[in-house]
């Protein structure tokens, strides 16, 4: 069993995390551009950050047999500093067509200000220009309104919902997102976002079509094994292997594969760490006990 974590901020994680992810079967991942816990004050900080996403972090991941992709963009939190945001808009064209850049992201709303909308529009247009998927961050506060407003803006700009992955969904947003034709991603992140027992229920109701599970692990208390753990938990609850593979591997691959910058052959031909060698066949999902041990005892993320 292999996993594709389509949202994880590896610059904030250690090599121990890379080792555990590789051992748990994470074959590939996407690192979205985001803020770093505190606002940046200079455009050059963005340039060096983007350089690390297309450079050193890619290399670091490769040391563990994991293929690293990224999305490039100005996150909504930092979109409220207009002078800085304008400078970042000048930088983005240097990066968005690069090899391994699978989308513009993560962009969207935070406080839902006019300034945030301005840069969401500019970046959505850039995605159209470069023919790239868009990775959307939905706000923590007033999430439902912000999610719908995001879709309104994207459609106004002319984006195709089939090329947009809306992330950090919950029970309140999922229906509208799927109904309007978008990919709905769910971040399994302890305390502040979504626990994986809730994910089991969501899949019972909505199935697996256009649904994506990711970790969004970052500099906060989060879990880089959220995707394999959720896969194992789904299996324990009797969800079919096929559906599990869809939400943890094939759906993100198809959604971001529209960039032309990621395909399964990228890692099939490389000698990554083979999770089946560590977990003997498909025991990752079939032998719950072994997995619990490998994952540190508990599959449930609350």
């Amino acid at each position: 069993m292999r996993f594709f974590d389509s949202h994880v901020h590896m610059v904030s994680r250690t090599t121990d995390d890379y080792q555990r992810m590789a051992a748990a079967g994470v074959a590939a991942l996407i690192e979205p551009s985001f803020w770093q816990g505190q606002p940046r004050t200079e455009p050059g900080s963005f340039k060096d950050y983007f350089n690390s996403l297309i450079g050193f972090e890619r290399f670091r991941a490769s040391q563990f047999g994991i293929k690293h992709y990224c999305t490039i963009g100005l996150n909504p939190k930092e979109a409220n500093n207009e002078k800085l945001a304008d400078a970042v808009m000048e930088l983005l064209p240097l990066y968005i067509c690069k090899e391994g850049v699978v989308g513009i992201g993560e962009i969207g709303f935070d406080d839902q200000t006019a300034m945030e909308e301005k840069y969401l529009r500019i970046q959505a247009l850039m995605a159209l220009e470069a023919d790239l998927p868009i990775q959307i961050h939905t706000p923590h506060r007033d999430k439902k309104t912000g999610t719908i407003r995001t879709m309104d803006v994207l459609e106004d700009v002319g984006c195709d919902p089939a090329k947009v992955i809306i992330d950090h969904n919950n029970e309140e947003t999922v229906k509208a997102v799927l109904d309007r034709g978008y990919w709905a991603a769910f971040t399994i992140y302890p305390h502040t976002k979504l626990g994986n027992e809730r994910m089991v229920e969501i899949m019972r109701e909505y199935g697996s079509e256009r649904i994506v599970v990711d970790s969004s692990a970052d500099w906060g208390i989060s879990d880089p094994l959220a995707v394999p753990k959720t896969a194992a938990l789904l299996r324990e609850h009797g969800v079919s292997l096929e559906k599990i593979e869809q939400v943890t591997y094939y759906n993100p691959l198809t959604a971001y594969g529209q960039s032309g910058q990621v395909q399964e052959s990228d890692w099939e031909d490389t000698e990554g760490i083979d999770p089946t060698a560590l977990f003997a066949g498909n025991t990752l999902l079939r032998g719950g006990q072994d997995i619990k041990e490998a994952m540190g005892g508990d599959l449930i993320i609350r």
């Binding site: 240097l94 968005i96 067509c97 090899e99 470069a130 032309g260 910058q261």
Partner: peptide, 10 residues
């Protein structure tokens, strides 16, 4: 030019 130079990879 930026798009073309990077876009070679496409």
């Amino acid at each position: 030019f930026y798009y073309a130079f990077s876009g070679v990879s496409r």
